[in-house]
Design a protein around this nucleic acid. Structure first.
Lengths: 288, 288
DNA sequence: TCAACTAATGCAAAAACAGCATTACTGATG
DNA sequence: CATCAGTAATGCTGTTTTTGCATTAGTTGA
C-alpha cells in the first residue's frame, strides 16, 4: 500500500469520477482504476460501489475517507517536522505568542536569539484559538508562550515572569488623581469576556471579585487597537503592564493588585537541537 | 512511499542491523538496503548514519521512529475498523463494561442482542483503566457502558437507568434490624478509594458526606470477590443494587439514598450498521 | 597481514506499472 | 427502437522498478 494510493483514493472519494480524478492527479484513467483496484485488493475492503456509469462510496469507504484525511495530514506534518530536525540549525522554528508580549518581552527575546543563533529562521504566529497544547503536539508550533501553565504530561512548561495588570487610561484621567471610584461608570474597551482565553477569564474573575459589571462599548482582542482608542479618549481598558512599552502617547497605566504570568512551553524530549537551544536561551533570560 | 517501507524502517531502527532486519522482514539484504535508500531519497531526510560496519539512527530518524510507531498502529486499527464495517453484520463488535453490570443488566442485554441479531459476534472486555473516551475514539472498543456520562463532542451518550447503591451485609447482621449506626466500627471490603473510577469517587463523596472514615480491611475491585467475602462474614461493603442478581447466599442488601447511573456510549456518526443496530436495541430497552 | 563482518552495488531476471486503444454497459434523446 | 454520449474496466505492449545473487569495499580485531 502506497501513501500515493491513499491520496488517489481521497481525491476520488471527493470527486466520485474516475476521469476527473485521473486528470487532477496527473495519471491516466486506466492507471487510476487499477490503483484503486489494487488498494481494494490489498485491504480486502470494497471502497466504492461502481457500475459502468456511477461511482459511490461504500460505508467502509466513507469511514476510511474521514479517518485517512486526518491521518495523512498528521503524516505530512510529521515529515515536515522531521525535515526541520534534519536541517538542524538551518531549519525554521515556529513560535506562537499572546499579543500582550508584542511590545516588551518578545522583541527582547528575539534580540537574544539573534545574538546567539544568528542563522536561525523564525515563524511567528499569534494564534486565534489558544489551544497551545494541540498546536505543540501536532507540531504546528515548536515554542508556545502562554499566560497560563499548560498541564500535560508531554509538554514542559517554565514560568518566565509575572507582571501586574493595569488600568489603562488617557492622560489627565481623574483616576490618576483621586482614588479609583465609580469605575462602573467608565466605558470599557476590552477583549470579549466570553472568550476562553486565560486573560479573558482573569478579567471576568477580577470584575466579579470587585463586584463590577463593566460597561463595554468596544470589544477588541488586539492590544494595539485598544491602546489607540484609549489614547483618543474613547474609554479605558485593562491590560498587562507590558503594553506600556508600546510607548503610545497620551496614555497612563495604573497598576492593580492582580498579576499575570508568562510561561514558555515546549514538547518534552524535543529532538530538534535548534529548538532545544532556544529553550535554553529562554531559561537563561529567566535566571537574570 | 510505501507503508511497507515504513515498516522496514521501523524494524531496522530497532535492530540497527541490515542483515538481521532483512531476515526478519523476509527480503534480501540488498533489497532492504535499497528500500531504505529509496525512503531517504523520497523524504530527502537522512534516517541512518552508517559506515561499512555500524548503523545508527540520526535525530530525525529517532523522531520518525517515535512518531511512526504510533501512526502505523493507528493506521492498522483504522483498517481493522473499516473491515468490520465492510463485513457488516458478520463482523465482531467490541463492548466494554463496568463489572457491576455483570450479573444483572449485561446478561439481559446480551439476550436481547441474541434474539434480534443472532449472527452478531461480540468481544466483551472489562477495561482496567476506565478511559472509555480514548478506547472509543481509537476504535479499540465500539460500545462502552459507563457509570458516568462521557462529555466529549465526538461521543454520544445515553442514560439507561439509575439504581440505588446498597450496604451489603451478611444475613442476620444487626444493621438489618436496628438503624444503621456506628457504621464506623464495621470492617469494609471495598474497591480502593484512591482509584480514579467514577464508583470510587462516588464512595469517597458518600463517606465524607456522612462523615465516616471507613476501616478498610480488604481492597478489591472485583465485585464477585467482594460478595464472596461478605457472605463469609469477613466484613461489609457498598455496591450497586445490581449485584443482588448474583444470587450469592447469606447476603442482604440495604438500599441507601444515593443512586448511580448506567450510560451507554458510542462514537458519533457511527457508520457500522451492526453497531448502529446494537445502539438502537439499547435505546429500546430504555424506553420499556 | 589476514580473516570476519557488514553495507553498498553491478547485473540480469522478474514483477509491477503506465498509457493507448478498445470493450462493455448505461441512460438519455429523438 | 436506434443512436449517441458518457464512463469504468481491460487487453496489450513498452517502460520502469524491484528483486536476489554475487561481488565489492571498507572496518575491526586477532
Amino acid at each position: 500500500m502506497t501513501i500515493q494510493q491513499i491520496r488517489y483514493f481521497l481525491v476520488l472519494a471527493k470527486e466520485l469520477h474516475f476521469w476527473n480524478t485521473a486528470e487532477k492527479v496527473f495519471i491516466s484513467q486506466s492507471s487510476l482504476s487499477r490503483q484503486i483496484q489494487a488498494l481494494e485488493d490489498e485491504l480486502q475492503i470494497q471502497l466504492f460501489e461502481r457500475d459502468k456509469r456511477n461511482v459511490k462510496l461504500t460505508n467502509a469507504g466513507k469511514f476510511l475517507q474521514e479517518q485517512w484525511i486526518e491521518k495523512i495530514n498528521e503524516f505530512d506534518q510529521i515529515i515536515r517536522q522531521a525535515k526541520k530536525i534534519d536541517d538542524g540549525k538551518a531549519g525554521t522554528i515556529s513560535i506562537t505568542y499572546p499579543g500582550s508580549i508584542t511590545y516588551d518581552f518578545l522583541p527582547k527575546f528575539l534580540e537574544v536569539l539573534n545574538n546567539n543563533i544568528p542563522e536561525l529562521k523564525l515563524e511567528l504566529t499569534e494564534p486565534t484559538d489558544e489551544n497551545h497544547e494541540k498546536l505543540l503536539l501536532s507540531f504546528e508550533t515548536d515554542i508556545a508562550f502562554s499566560r497560563d501553565k499548560i498541564k500535560n504530561a508531554n509538554i514542559d512548561s517554565l514560568k518566565l515572569y509575572s507582571e501586574p495588570i493595569c488600568l489603562v487610561v488617557p492622560k489627565n484621567h481623574r483616576f490618576l488623581k483621586n482614588n479609583i471610584a465609580e469605575i462602573e461608570n467608565e466605558k470599557f474597551i476590552i477583549s470579549g469576556l466570553h472568550q476562553t482565553t486565560f486573560f479573558a477569564s482573569l478579567l471576568r474573575t477580577w470584575f466579579s471579585k470587585n463586584r463590577i459589571e463593566p460597561k463595554i462599548i468596544i470589544e477588541s482582542d488586539f492590544g494595539g487597537m485598544i491602546l489607540n482608542l484609549v489614547s483618543k479618549g474613547l474609554g479605558i481598558s485593562i491590560l498587562p503592564l507590558s503594553f506600556k512599552s508600546a510607548l503610545i502617547e497620551n496614555i497612563e497605566f495604573i497598576e492593580l493588585e492582580e498579576t499575570i504570568d508568562l510561561y514558555i512551553n515546549w514538547r518534552q524530549n524535543e529532538l530538534n537541537n535548534a529548538i532545544k537551544k532556544v529553550i535554553e536561551l529562554a531559561e537563561g533570560i529567566r535566571e537574570r
